[in-house]
Design a protein around this nucleic acid. Structure first.
Length: 485
RNA sequence: GGCCCCAUAGUGAAGCGGUUAACACACCAGCCUUUCACGCUGGCGACGCGGGUUCGAAUCCCGCUGGGGUCACCA
């Protein structure tokens, strides 16, 4: 969909403070962020907290944490301030009231005294009669006297917008022309009886006041766009450009939800995904560079260079965790070992492999040893034998050795290496020589050592693993194993 | 159910009226190799269906089917 962005670009992300950031929100935020940074524009974070029931304690900071972890930062927001403060809708109530009043006075909106129960009954009746479900508009023609009477009876009104019978359409930056029929919408509430505006209303007012010129958000907002346009028009505001991104789906193509797999950014952090990988993966979910690339590993700078709305897909995308794993593994391999070691620390602590006091130099050696076999940081737990004493799988060893004398073999290795400078190359020379003297096959000796040292048949290359485990521990483990054979 | 959006391999996608229908992940096989992993090479695999328009449709139009979104004094 080819169309110019309005300049200077001002985009926003407006989450409600429901806790941790959802991965879908993360992607929308990323796209907004890229658009702003690409064009020297401004990215605004606004907290849509008009539903007081939904606000969770600390939830706002949870959203910040998720976005910051990803490296997405904003220019204006509740915590940063800016020329259009406040950036929290709950603090902007007088502003909304002013515009509601304006609509009331110009006759574009009216008070509605229907109770929730009455409205519910109306909806049910419509459902039964199989006609379109929309508000009947019965309060639209109340006289001032009738309104006074209802007020006196203790009824507190909501305010509804008069919806005209006409087509409402807009040009979506990723989907093209979209239109719907206003006659199907019905006069909707813009101000609740508790004096708090409804989402669609607050959003329009804020987007206008904050001079948002491209509203880029998830496809779940397409149907909100129609009433929002009506509000822009009623108020005489300039309508921004819209772009609606596709949704993210579970493997079975159902909407991504908590039930099926992780949905929050924080969960991915805990599983040991790198923020760089997360960004990379999210970027490619619903967008592509539109040209052939060798692989799809891109950092923020690459994305800044390549991203464009034109290559955003309109169709929903399945969140493929296998691909995330691949991207994550790629990113882990790209890290400097010292950096990787640093990032591994919390995972090692959680696994109980290290305490608060640890040797970062040693961890760096560990990191380079295991770096290319780590799909996620939490996979370090598979390398427990680099930290803890493994259990010796004697039956496994016997199976490998068959008729060979394991005790003799192990003792020979101990004798050959005991006084060696403890380095990979030295160990390899000595052990290969021992193997020749023993007359064992490579597999027999190496697998026996691996089993004795690591407790399993899988490990990084033997000699470098031995170096990292350290002389003392290696000798001790070999002796212990020998005693068991 | 009404309205809206979407539809290329298992997944993400390129394609913009004429292509042997890219590429990436996954999967399979081989190579490398002390195991695993990495890496390399090769392979399997797709235009949802039906009508048009056109000399020619994955590309344009219509219908159907399927999936998704949305119909609150939620956001």
């Amino acid at each position: 969909m080819v169309m110019e962005l309005r300049k200077p670009v001002r985009v926003r992300m407006a989450p409600s403070p429901t806790g941790d950031a959802h991965v879908g929100h993360a992607r929308t935020t990323l796209y907004n962020y890229l658009l702003a940074r690409q064009h020297g524009g401004t990215f605004i974070l606004r907290i849509d907290d008009t539903d007081t029931k939904r606000n969770v304690e600390e939830a706002e900071t949870g959203v910040y944490r998720g976005l910051r972890w990803l490296g997405l930062d904003w220019d204006e927001g509740p915590d940063k301030g800016g020329p259009h403060a406040p950036y929290r809708q709950s603090e902007r109530l007088p502003i909304y009231h002013k515009y509601v009043k304006q609509l009331l006075e110009s006759g574009k909106a009216y008070e509605c005294f229907c109770t929730p129960e009455e409205l519910e009954a109306e909806r049910e009746a419509q459902q039964e009669a199989k006609v379109d479900i929309k508000y009947s508009g019965k309060c639209r023609h109340l006289t001032e006297a009738e309104r006074e009477e209802l007020r006196a009876a203790g009824r507190v009104p909501t305010v509804r917008l008069k919806v005209p019978d006409k087509k409402i359409g807009f040009h979506d930056l990723v989907r093209g022309w979209i239109e719907a029929d206003g006659s199907l919408i019905g006069d909707f509430i813009i101000l609740k009886s508790n004096g708090i505006p409804v989402y669609n209303f607050a959003t329009v007012i804020d987007d206008h006041l904050m001079q948002i010129n491209q509203v880029t958000r998830g496809a779940e907002h397409i149907s909100n766009t129609f009433p929002q346009i009506l509000i822009y028009q009623a108020l005489g505001f300039e309508i921004p450009q819209f772009a609606h991104f596709s949704l993210m789906l579970n493997e079975d193509r159902s909407k991504m939800s908590k039930r099926k797999g992780a949905t929050f950014v924080g969960q991915y952090a805990e599983m040991g995904y790198l923020p760089e990988a997360m960004i990379n993966f999210l970027a490619f979910l619903g967008w592509s560079p539109g040209e052939e690339v060798v692989d799809e590993i891109m950092d923020m700078d690459d994305l800044l260079e390549k991203f464009s709305l034109e290559h955003c897909s309109a169709s929903n995308a399945v969140f493929d965790i296998k691909k995330l794993d691949w991207i994550n593994a790629k990113w882990i391999r790209r890290l400097e070992p010292a950096d990787l070691a640093q990032r591994l620390v919390p995972f090692l602590q959680k696994a109980g492999f290290i305490g608060d006091d640890y040797d970062l130099d040693h961890l760096t050696k560990v990191a380079s040893l295991i770096q290319e076999r780590l799909p996620r940081l939490d996979a370090v737990r598979d390398f427990h034998y680099l930290f803890l004493e493994p259990e010796v799988p004697t039956t496994e060893i016997k199976k490998v050795l068959k008729d060979k004398d394991g005790q003799a073999g192990l003792q020979a290795v101990i004798a050959a290496t005991e006084s060696l400078p403890w380095q990979e190359a030295e160990l390899e020379t000595a052990i290969r020589q021992t193997q020749a003297e023993l007359g064992w096959s490579t597999k027999e000796l190496f697998m026996t050592l691996r089993l004795a040292l690591c407790g399993g048949k899988v490990s990084p290359p033997l000699f470098s693993t031995m170096e990292v485990i350290g002389k003392e521990r290696v000798i001790r483990r070999l002796q212990a194993a020998a005693a068991l054979l």
